[in-house]
Amino acid sequence: MKPFSYVKPLDLAEAVAAIGPGAKFLGGGTNLVDLMREGIELPETVVDVTGLPLDEVDELPGGGLRIGALVRNSALAADRRVRAAYPVLSQAVLAGASPQLRNMATVGGNLLQRTRCRYFYDQAYACNKREPGTGCDALDGFTRGHAVLGVSGSCIAAHPSDMCVALAALDATVEVQSVRGTRRIPMSDVHLPPGDTPHVETALAEDELVTAVELPPAPVAAGSRYRKVRDRASYAFALVSVAAALEVRDGTVTAVRLALGGVGTTPWRAREAERLLEGGPATEEAFGRAADAELAAAITRQGNAFKVPLARATIVATLKELAG
């Protein structure tokens, strides 16, 4: 690991002032430290923000929750209010990583974690995300873990987070702060598809620190569910995951939220499927049609073509279960 300097500010103003070119914020370190060990992230300065008072979950006046960026993943998953009102979020967090990692990982860090594409990690390979313009060795390599939605000719790396898939379904808002002030970014705008610039992964500027994630009230989410399909029973990234909430009255879908993981270059809100489902019949056929419509845009490669039928099957099974 390249030597670096380390600072640990104790208030927010100091933290955002400490960041500059070559500096990185450090939360739980479960991703950044790995990337530093692999020589992919080479910060001159690491600004440890875990001393900041951003580790509470608070109820918002109009309903909803405000989750501090430094709330540990395990604490978020265990929070009673989260479990009651947004079970999909608790389930998604618990589906990720391992208990040890969840005890370290923060909400802000989880939001900004980088892809696990092995061609990104191993510097012997070409990677546009790691070194812009060098090419993508994943395209003709092993693509079992790669995305089929939101891909480009430059990058097909999947977004690895489970938590973010739930946040996408829940219409979360991300609050960030820098010396220039505070701004709020809708979850659907936080992560950017790779396009021709796969190294630009989020809408955050280099000097912006995630301070909180806000969840608006969502009655439909009370019975929501996260279903993760993977190659082993625990500690594996999603091949496909589905965050879903469904409200059915008299056989008709009155509210629905659907987001996908493991298949997108970003946490994938399935808006096309939602549009088709809303107001339609809550039947297996309708669920299948909605899934097909969402997945019609998929661009597959030999190694990940199975994700389209797998995603379809998982969407249908999850919605069926929610429809009861």
Binding site: R118, Y119, D122, R232, S234, Y235, A236, F237
Partner: peptide, 14 residues
């Protein structure tokens, strides 16, 4: 390509 315990899957307890 999968020279890590995250990517080379050995069975976990579950």
């Amino acid at each position: 390509v999968n020279a890590s315990l995250a990517d080379y899957h050995v069975p976990v307890h579950a």
